[in-house]
Amino acid sequence: MEKHSTEKLQAICSQVRRDILRMVHSCQSGHPGASLGCTEFFVALYFDQLKHNKDFNMDGTGEDLFFLSNGHISPVWYSVLARSGYFGTGELATFRKINSRLQGHPATEEGLPGIRVASGSLGQGLSVAIGAALSKKMNGDNRTVYALMGDGEQQEGQIWEAAMCAPHHKVDNLIASIDVNGQQIDGPTHEIMNLLDLKAKWEAFGWEVIVTENGNDISQVIQSLEKAKSLLGKGKPVLNLLHTDMGYGVDFMVGTHKWHGVAPNDEQLEKALAQLEETLGDY
């Protein structure tokens, strides 16, 4: 894959943020907050890190695989999939509308390229990623499996079943990230159900843990993912605590849970888009 400059990757991020806002505005639903916050992570993955084939096939043999466990941030994923060539960007206009392949939460049933399992009901994606990583090991396929979870999602019990399982089975071809933005639907995570020390928890479960202090700095995100890769193959799975700001990129959306699952109105959209340069052409 050709390497993009930091400036180029930042330009892609700006366009992806415009896509996210226009998608949720168009259907007046969806989850812009963490989609905006995770934009750098998705752009770093799909435009810099993943060895992947935009001619999608389910098995992904010889490719790196990505699983999104917190499926509600589908807007950022759909935008990045379209912008990296999995399907036409025009299809983004169908998000959450009837007869669309772009379901509110990611799904395989309509055959949208890039999606390998449905997600949305929280807590399930890490287990699926571990299964796919074990499948790669059994097949002698040395590529990597990536997963992203939310921090609120850490409140689900199944996450900790999976957390216990991966080190036990020495799943050392897996890089899981947690979007640590400190927010969930009803408020800040420390008020709703305190997660306390995630680093200590994941280390205690047997993972190699790294921290990305600023997950909205694309250079830092790439450095972290490179570091994570260097830790693979040593008997342990890798966990990346990716600190982001929910709503990053739009001044009135940043840092609050209020935009977790609320779409901007016409006026808010205009105000938000004015802060984000159109770099690749709106869909």
Binding site: T61, V117, G125, L134, Q158, A162
Partner: peptide, 16 residues
């Protein structure tokens, strides 16, 4: 950990 087992199984199908 039955919930995890179902997820693992779903993931293992990817790759045949």
């Amino acid at each position: 950990s039955e919930a995890n087992m179902m997820g693992l199984a779903a993931g293992m199908t990817i790759g045949g």
